[in-house]
Design a protein around this nucleic acid. Structure first.
Length: 108
DNA sequence: GGATTGACGTGTC
DNA sequence: AGACACGCCAATC
């Protein structure tokens, strides 16, 4: 029950407001791990197993590209959810990424 | 306990 | 501007 890195990532991702997105690196940094951005993404693999559903669709890489969209049940669901929240996604990439970007450290 | 992995990031060609 | 390569860190086998 030790809050491993994964759990910390889950909680932080859950704090992401709707219509906003963040990057794996930003999450990792806010957790103090800095370069463990890959861990954040890896944790997302268990996100679907986490009890309170983790809005993994609000987490993208630094380029705003929906890298993990292929990991969703229907890969297209990621875009659906994002656009449903007002996030513009074009060609698996967030349009106004800098606008919808949500920095954990900045808000927290 | 060593080796492998992995939904990334940044720099370079 | 697009593609390639290396580096990081933590969990899992």
């Amino acid at each position: 029950m030790e809050e491993s890195f994964y759990d910390q990532v889950f909680e932080l991702v859950r704090l992401i407001p709707e219509g906003r997105v963040t990057s794996y690196g930003a999450i990792a940094r806010s957790l103090g791990s800095g370069g463990s951005a890959r861990m954040v993404g890896y944790a997302m693999s268990n996100a679907g197993l986490s009890h309170p559903p983790v809005p993994a669709h609000r987490v993208v890489n630094s380029t705003g590209l929906l890298t993990g969209k292929f990991h969703f049940s229907p890969p297209e669901q990621m875009e659906e959810l994002l656009q449903a929240e007002g996030v513009i996604v074009v060609d698996n990439k967030i349009k106004n990424f800098k606008v919808v970007f949500w920095d954990p450290m900045l808000e927290l």
